[in-house]
Write a protein that binds this DNA or RNA. Structure first.
Length: 175
DNA sequence: CGCTTTTGACCAGCGC
DNA sequence: GCGCTGGTCAAAAGCG
């Protein structure tokens, strides 16, 4: 077990739970099905992900606003780990435009492609300046569903995979 | 045969 | 205005 989860918000704007998703939202399934050790959870944006779902997901783990890195160490004996995501700086600008529900998970995993209950099709790969590791772009292969996810390895600790989900599934998970 | 992956090119936004 | 960077497209190849 030990799905150690860190949850913290990136944009720090609003946390209104006034706009919950449908109770049967597919993300609920996906979060429950997450197969790996989830070390961090980052909410990059507001509403669409029901925080109730998240709480059931983290099942009692920390649900703080900021990383304290006091749990990660238990994961693999790795030393304390601090986040330096700077998404906070620019997300406010982005969210004005189009970015809706954006959630990032930081997962301790050797593999980058995890079965989260949805079917993904890779559509791009990019080397990013911030990291020596490539960033992979995936799109949900279900027709009409425009959810995307971006997967990249943590530049500081390659044992961790950062998965960012953008959008909301319009369908239940396939599994 | 249909779907996925790969990969270079293209495009748009942003900072200087 | 130009260059850099991140994100997407699309054609070709690969795989089941």
């Amino acid at each position: 077990m030990c799905a150690v989860v860190h949850s913290f918000r990136i944009n720090g704007v609003k946390m209104s739970g006034d706009n919950p998703k449908a109770p049967d939202s597919p993300e609920n399934d996906f979060t429950k099905q997450w197969p790996s050790e989830l070390s961090e959870y980052l909410n990059l944006d507001d509403d669409p992900w029901s925080y109730d779902d998240l709480e059931s997901f983290v099942s009692g783990h920390a649900f703080s606003h900021k990383t304290e890195a006091n749990e990660v160490g238990e994961l693999g004996g790795s030393s304390t780990h601090h986040e330096e995501f700077s998404i906070n700086d620019g997300i406010n600008e982005h969210e004005k435009k189009e970015v809706r529900d954006r959630v990032a998970f930081k997962t301790k995993s050797e593999i980058e492609i995890m079965d989260d209950g949805f079917k993904w099709r890779k559509y791009g790969k990019k080397m990013v300046k911030n990291s020596p590791n490539p960033r992979n772009y995936y799109r949900c292969s279900v027709e009409g569903c425009s959810v995307k996810k971006v997967v990249e390895r943590d530049k500081d600790d390659p044992r961790y995979v950062i998965t960012t989900y953008v959008g909301t599934h319009t369908h239940p998970s396939y599994s």
